[in-house]
Design a protein around this nucleic acid. Structure first.
Length: 687
DNA sequence: CCTTGCGCCATAGAATCGGC
DNA sequence: GCCGATTCTATGGCGCAAGG
């Protein structure tokens, strides 16, 4: 309905506005031409055009515009054509007036005249240009002639062939004869067919055979498209799971490169209007195959309305710790130090598969922007469930206990050789029944990740200055965790208080994880970005290797077996740690600042914290006990534990985050560029 | 993820020109 | 009247960013 009306009003607009508009356009153009002719100099309209014009004039040594011939016959011809044009114009104007009169009872000329846009045949809004085209059942060009359909073009071509066969090889006027023939034979369809149109159709057929070569040419050769589609089909079939465009993109790029079309990518890289095998393109291919994209579950977490208050309270608590225990301020200057932040990121393994291939990664960063080694939690019971790192005795067994939910958990650390050589970024491997962290893995995390870190840092600091902090084991350190049952488990906290009394726990207020936890959005996102890139590199490389090795496109596979996935994940995670610590450091610091936690080293904040102590900053704390100082350490820890226990478990803390492969909107549009070593490709292709 | 709006590129069509 | 060439306009299709 709406659309119909739009078309209708548009049509009346055409009738009403056309004569004057056309006339105005012509006048404007004449003026422009005259201006150009008068002085091929600094006309505002188009410096470029003027420049080319003057060049032309110099080349032809002719003073007039466009090198018009001075031949008397040419002049006469020009004048004749001018007269004819004027005549045609007059006729056309009359025709428009007639149709205008016919449509006179149609309403709202005012609305119509204001129209500056129209809807093209695909429903897109387009700005009006000088002249307007008409739309009804048949397609018209702006001047009102018919655009011929596929079959009609074929008829024209056939007629042309017939006439050409009838004539002698040297004969001319074939186009005109064809047009005439068709006009007389099929007047309803071809009443307006002209010789130039015939010529266009014939030439186009000779060139391409395509119906309309307009628009961006197909970026890739048809062979490549077929190959990519075959590979997609193969991969999708093998997986039998949900597939998303970001997963297939590296495959497509791999195929393109393997076929030697790297230049297509290189040239278009990052530039507008050029092909760069974007997600859009991949999605287009997927749609072509009839596949559907599945909308992933978004971030549905709700932040409590008073989150700012809650987070501030947390900052104050941290400030109090800082004040009370004189936790070094070197932190503020960027030296690595004490505070820990951690978060479990349920990494939906890289392939976004079913639950079986998930694993949990526990990551942590210090407030100075250093990322600690990860802890991975996978599903399984024995060492064999861990990825094969290629060396015997890769793992050392550390813990084997039943967790608070009754199932057994196993923890390992990589053997010294492995840890020193390639798996530098993962310090703890755990196996649980469901790949979730529990109190046992938390214990392993403390002993295998946190404590070594603190120890190393404290020793480093004391090596430069004994004043900088107290000895390891005395200096109080703070670990910030979110409220999750693994961290509030009473047995675990008791164990912590018993064995590592110098560690303070600080809980992010429930449901405030997105606001109060630096890990949550930013750092995890960066980590996932790195993993995505590594996945992309891997697939890209894999596909290329397979193709070079003679694999047919339809046989391309991306291994998704559990061992491969685990191995990749472990390798990538491990590599991500040093990378985060070098290239992404400033980003991590920014994430910390976003939470306001760094304010804890601010004297004002500390003063406020001390003041608020009376008002229940630590609600479950008996202040008298607390003021006992070091002697009351144990009790303090217990009280803090109790404090945290009041907080109900934060269901959302276990939220795994978006699938790794989904890009965060607006952050990583051209990420795949980094999957490819462009320099090596460049040298390879030139060699 | 999807839609919208816009810019870019390249070509088809229209208008025009010189020439036969 | 027609052809081939040239110039200007119209339009197809995609990349990209913002907003939902």
């Amino acid at each position: 309905m709406e659309r119909g009306r739009g078309l209708f009003s548009f049509f009346t607009a055409l009738s009403a506005a056309n004569p004057s508009e056309v006339k105005a356009a012509k006048e404007a153009r004449a003026a422009r031409d005259k201006a150009d002719a008068d002085a091929c100099g600094e006309r505002s309209k188009a410096a470029k055009k003027a420049a080319s014009q003057s060049c032309w004039n110099e080349a032809t040594a002719s003073g007039s515009k466009k090198g018009l011939s001075n031949d008397p016959e040419a002049i006469r011809s020009r004048e004749r054509r001018k007269r004819e044009a004027a005549k045609r114009e007059k006729q056309r104007a009359k025709a428009f007036n007639d149709s205008n009169a016919a449509a006179a009872n149609h309403p709202e000329p005012a609305d119509v005249e204001k129209e500056t846009h129209y809807t093209d045949n695909k429903g897109r809004k387009r700005k009006r240009k000088t002249l307007r085209s008409r739309t009804d059942g048949v397609r018209y060009t702006k001047a009102g002639s018919v655009i011929y359909s596929d079959t009609e073009c074929r008829m024209v071509a056939e007629t042309f062939d017939r006439i050409k066969a009838r004539n002698l090889p040297g004969d001319t006027e074939l186009y005109a004869k064809t047009a005439k023939d068709l006009r007389s034979r099929l007047p309803t369809t071809f009443s307006k067919l002209g010789r130039q149109q015939v010529r266009q159709i014939i030439l186009r057929r000779e060139r391409t055979g395509a119906l309309d070569g307009r628009g961006r040419f197909t970026p890739l050769p048809a062979v490549l498209i077929t190959a990519i589609l075959l590979a997609f089909t193969s991969v999708v079939k093998a997986r039998a799971t949900v597939i998303s465009a970001p997963m297939l993109q590296p495959i497509a790029i791999g195929i393109i490169i393997a076929h030697g079309y790297t230049s297509l990518l290189r040239e278009g890289r990052g530039k507008r209007g050029e092909f760069c095998c974007g997600l859009h393109f991949v999605r287009g291919l997927m749609k072509q195959k009839g596949w559907r994209n599945v909308k992933p579950q978004g971030d549905t977490r709700k932040v409590p309305p008073n989150w700012a208050e809650l987070v501030h309270a947390m900052v104050l608590r941290l400030a109090y710790f800082v004040w009370q225990h004189d936790i070094p301020k070197e932190l503020r200057k960027g030296k690595t130090w004490i505070t820990e932040e951690m978060h479990k990121s349920g990494d939906k393994s890289l392939q976004n598969h079913g639950d079986k291939r998930q694993c949990t990664v526990v990551t942590a960063t210090s407030a100075a922007g250093e990322m600690l080694p990860h802890q991975t939690v996978m599903e399984g019971k024995t060492v064999r469930a861990l990825p094969n790192l290629g060396a015997p005795y890769s793992y050392s067994h550390t813990l084997n206990k039943s967790n608070s939910k009754g199932t057994r958990s196993f923890c390992f650390v990589p053997s010294p050789v492995v840890a020193a050589t390639w798996i530098t970024g993962i310090a703890s491997f755990c196996l649980t029944a469901n790949h979730w962290s529990d109190n046992i893995t938390s214990r392993a995390w403390i002993t295998d990740v946190v404590v070594p870190y603190f120890k190393r840092k404290i020793e480093e600091m004391r090596a430069t200055s004994l004043e900088s902090c107290k000895e390891f084991g005395t200096q109080v350190c703070v670990v910030i965790v979110d409220v999750w049952w693994g961290w509030i488990d009473a047995g675990w906290k008791a164990w912590l208080a018993e064995t590592h009394p110098w560690i303070r726990l600080l809980y992010v207020p429930p449901r405030c994880t997105p606001k109060g936890q630096p890990m949550d959005a930013g750092i995890i996102a960066m980590l996932k970005g790195i993993l995505r890139r590594q996945y992309g590199t891997w697939v890209c490389d894999l596909v290329q290797r397979q193709l070079r090795g003679g694999t047919k496109p339809e046989e391309i596979t991306v291994p998704s077996d559990v061992p491969t996935c685990k191995r990749n994940l472990v390798n990538w995670l491990s590599e991500a740690v040093p990378e985060m610590n070098t290239t992404e450091k400033s980003g991590m610091l920014k994430c910390w600042e976003a939470t306001g936690l760094h304010k804890a080293w601010n004297k004002d904040t500390q003063r406020e914290a001390v003041k608020k102590l009376q008002d229940g900053l630590f609600p479950n704390l008996d202040l008298d006990q607390y003021n006992l100082g070091d002697e009351g350490m144990m009790k303090v820890v217990a009280a803090l534990v109790a404090d945290a226990q009041d907080n109900s478990e934060d269901q959302d803390a276990g939220w795994p985050g978006l699938p790794v492969l989904q890009t965060v909107p607006g952050t990583v549009a051209q990420e795949w560029e980094r999957w490819i070593d462009w320099d090596s490709l460049g040298s390879a292709s030139s060699a």
